[in-house]
Amino acid sequence: MSQAPHDEFRDYVAARRPALLRAAMILTGDRVEAEDLLQAALANTYRAWGRIKDRTAMDGYVRRAMVNTQISWWRRRKFEIYPTDELPDQPVDDHTRRSEMHDALGRALARLPERQRAAVILRYYEDMSETEIAEVLGVSVGTVKSTVSRAVAKLRDDDALDLDFPDTP
């Protein structure tokens, strides 16, 4: 017996939301805007759910909806921005600094043993639970916990990550 369309959509969103949110973060550069963008794209996708025949292409459909929505938002914002002689009080985002931190993290991850690197990536990049990671790696949940713990400890001690990270609120 097949699922009702809204149940099928709910299951899709539950399974793919973390990956889709990461894509939205790349598009917006801001967590709150990314959540708004993903929500808008999922609303559009839900309205078209019955017309979408190829369920294997859903991620591409949602990503395209995010891009289209983001472009619409950019166009609308363009009319809301007015030039001024006054400088804003907020500091400008330093993309160079963020890139340096990203590169340093990539180098540090590359130095981890394969299982530790896989566990960290699955846990923090793919947002998988310890149980899901255990299934993927074919190990026990306890092994996942200790592997991630040791990997994070190594990353904290790694000299390549000795950047002066700004404090987060």
Rank of each mutant, 00 (worst) to 15 (best):
Q3S: 13
Q3A: 15
H6F: 12
E8S: 15
A14M: 10
A15S: 09
R16D: 03
A19V: 11
A19E: 04
R22S: 12
A24Q: 04
M25H: 11
I26Y: 15
L27Q: 07
T28S: 10
G29C: 10
V32A: 12
A34E: 00
T45M: 02
I52F: 01
K53N: 04
A57V: 01
M58R: 02
D59Q: 01
D59C: 00
G60M: 02
A65R: 02
A65Q: 06
V67A: 03
N68S: 13
I71A: 08
S72L: 12
W74I: 15
W74T: 13
R75H: 13
R76W: 06
F79D: 12
E80Q: 13
L87E: 13
D93Y: 07
R97G: 07
M101V: 12
M101S: 08
A104F: 01
L109R: 02
A110V: 03
R111Y: 00
L112S: 02
A118K: 12
A118T: 12
I121Y: 06
I121G: 00
L122K: 03
S129G: 06
E132Y: 02
E132H: 03
V136N: 01
G138D: 09
S140V: 11
G142D: 15
G142P: 06
T143C: 11
T147K: 02
D157N: 13
A160C: 06
D167S: 14
